[in-house]
């Protein structure tokens, strides 16, 4: 196994072009587990730790450009307001030590359906900045996950950053594991309200071959909110609507029985999480609307 240590982003891209089979490694919290368990022995490891800009983020307009290696700890500490769903998901990643090392780029590179960031990324919406010596392309997050541990990157591409829309409304993230910390998701659910567009987006983890959106549930809920004029009148979501939304989320999943849980439990838990997180986000939205209404006119 050769260990490539590019000193700059340009060198990293050149190395990846020269050795397309090279596996990029930054925090190593996923790659090293695979290597230690002998699940894979790549011919080349491409160490990105000397590429400092990968661990930085910047905001421009309504977009956060989050470097691939920004550790989860920093997301929790600094981007709670801009990316609340992702910050909540970051809280559930493994242990404090691993959150200090791991970043979203690793989750995306591995593209495991159990990656904790995915439901939040899908719900929040955004694009993956994929770069090679040939140039840069923006891959919408909805098109990024292709199969079990397969993503849309070309062999010579590296993930530079993800471009995420700053939250315009409440976001939530819930994850079921069989212990109260440091656990791989049995299943997970992310939801983001987008009041500016009057839409709702969702993300499901660990309950299908890839992370997925529950699009039928989103469409149903978006229509129901519109129909009831709920975005404006600030009324609660009718229980029947919440139930239907939850059922559609469960129906969107395509889970399996495995050592971590049964398929039927996963569907059940997704429905519960969908109903609860919808309640939390909608109540927060209503509260914020109420506050706005109560503000005296300037």
């Amino acid at each position: 196994m050769d260990f490539l240590r590019p000193a700059s982003w340009q060198e990293a891209l050149a190395a990846k072009a020269e050795h397309p089979s090279a596996v990029p490694i930054a925090g190593g919290t996923d790659v090293m587990v695979e290597i230690n368990f002998d699940h894979r022995r790549p011919a080349y490891l491409l160490d990105l730790n000397r590429v400092g800009e990968l661990a930085e983020w910047e905001t421009a307009g309504d977009i956060v450009r989050l470097g691939a290696s920004v550790p989860y700890t920093r997301i929790m500490e600094h981007l709670r307001r801009e990316l609340p769903g992702l910050a909540l998901a970051a809280h559930t990643v493994a242990s404090p030590q691993i959150r200090n090392r791991g970043g979203v780029g690793g989750n995306l590179g591995t593209a495991s359906p159990a990656g904790d960031a995915h439901p939040a990324l899908l719900a929040g919406g955004g694009e993956v900045e994929a770069v090679s010596v040939r140039g840069t392309r923006m891959i919408p997050i909805d098109d990024f996950y292709l199969g079990v541990k397969r993503n849309a990157l070309a062999p010579d591409e590296l993930i530079r950053a993800v471009h995420l829309r700053k939250a315009t409304g409440p976001q939530q993230f819930s994850k079921v594991g069989t212990r109260n910390a440091m656990v791989i998701a049995v299943c997970a659910f992310g939801i983001a309200l987008h009041p500016d567009r009057r839409t709702v987006r969702t993300g499901i983890g660990s309950a299908a071959p890839t992370p997925i959106r529950a699009t039928a549930a989103e469409e149903f809920l978006t229509a129901a909110l519109d129909e009831g004029g709920l975005w404006d009148n600030g009324k609660p979501v009718p229980p029947a609507v919440a139930r239907q939304f939850a059922d559609l989320v469960a129906a969107a999943a395509n889970p399996i029985d495995d050592v971590r849980g049964t398929a039927s439990y996963r569907r059940h838990a997704l429905a519960v999480m969908a109903r609860r997180t919808l309640g939390w986000t909608w109540e927060q939205y209503r509260g914020e609307q109420q506050e706005e209404r109560n503000q005296p006119c300037a």
Binding site: H91, V176, V183
Partner: peptide, 11 residues
């Protein structure tokens, strides 16, 4: 129950 996985706020 669920801890930081944020599965319930008391429900």
């Amino acid at each position: 129950p669920g801890g930081l996985s944020n599965t319930t706020h008391g429900e």
